[in-house]
Design a protein around this nucleic acid. Sequence first.
DNA 1: TTTCATGATTCTTC
DNA 2: GAAGAATCATGAAA
Length: 331
Amino acid sequence: MDDQTRMMTGLTGLGGLAQADVGDPDSVRKQQSLGQPQQDIGDILQQIMAITDESLDEAQARKHALNCHRMKPALFSVLCEIKEKTVLSIRGVQEEDPPDPQIMRLDNMLLAEGVSGPEKGGGSAAAAAAAAAAGGSPTDSSIEHSDYRAKLAQIRQIYHSELEKYEQACSEFTNHVMNLLREQSRTRPISPKEIERMVAIIHRKFSSIQMQLKQSTCEAVMILRSRFLDARRKRRNFNKQATEVLNEYFYSHLSNPYPSEEAKEELAKKCGITVSQVSNWFGNKRIRYKKNIGKFQEEANLYAVKTAVDAANVSAQASQANSPATCCIFL
DNA sequence: TTTCATGATTCTTC
DNA sequence: GAAGAATCATGAAA
C-alpha cells in the first residue's frame, strides 16, 4: 500500500469502509443480500466502538500524524479545489450584492439630520428655520430650538453608542469565527477564500441588525421633527403694536397694498416678526378686505384719521422747527 | 361650548 | 416666485 492509499484509508477511517456505506441501510442490506456473512457487520460495529474507546491523547496523536503526513498538503489542496468548484461557485454569484438602496436612504437621511457623520448644524439649522417660521417671541423660539437640539443630540448619542456596540460585537464574533476556522482548516479543507466568505456572511448579518438600528433612529428623528414642526401651527396673535403698524401701512397704501421687499423688511423689523409673516399677513389682509370691504370700512376710516393726525403732527413739528424762535434755540 | 378672528399652510394661477 | 383663494388650526371672547 503506498502512502496516498494509506492516507486515504486514514481519512476515511473504519479500515476502508466508506462512511456512506455505514450510514446507508440499503447498502448494508445489499451487502447482506449478496451473501456476506453477518460476522462482517459485527466487525464493523466493533471497530466503531474501538474508535470511541480511543483516548484523547491517542486521537490527538493520530490527528498529528495525519497533519504531518507528506501527502496531506496535496490532498488538502485537491479537496479545497473540489469544494470551491461545487458549493462556492454556486453561492458566489448571489453574495456579491450591490449596496442596499434602503441602507443608502437611511444613511443619507441620518447624515442630513446630523445624526450620523460629523456633528454639524444640520439638525440645529432645521430647528432654527422652523423656529423662525414659528414666529413666536424670540424667547419661545430659542427654548424650542434648544429643546430640539438637546433631543437630537440625545438620539445621536444613543445611535453612536449602539453602533459602537454592534461594531465591537461584530468584530469580536468575526475574530472568533476566523480563529475557529483557521484552527479547523488544519484538519478539514477550508480555504482562505471560504473564511473570507464566512466573514462576509457575518458582516451581512450584522449590517441587517445595523439597518434596524438606523431605521428606528430615523423613526425617532421623524417623530421629533414632526412634533417640533407641528409647533409652527401653534398660532400666536401678533402683539397690538405690530398689528397697528401693519394696518397703518395697509390702509395708507390701500390703492396698492403690496409692500416691496424693502418695505416688508422694514415692517418685519418694526413688528419683531419675519418677512414671510409680513407677507402672510398682507396676503390674508388683502383677501379678507376684498371679501368684506363693508366690515373693514370702519377700521379703514380709523386708520385714515390716525394717519392724517400723525401727518399733521409731523408737519406742525416741522413748521415749529423752522420758526425763528426755534432757530434761535439751535443757534 | 360655540363662534369669530387670525396666523399659517397648501394648492392654483399667472 | 408672488399673489389669490381655500382651508386648517388655534386663541380669545361671548
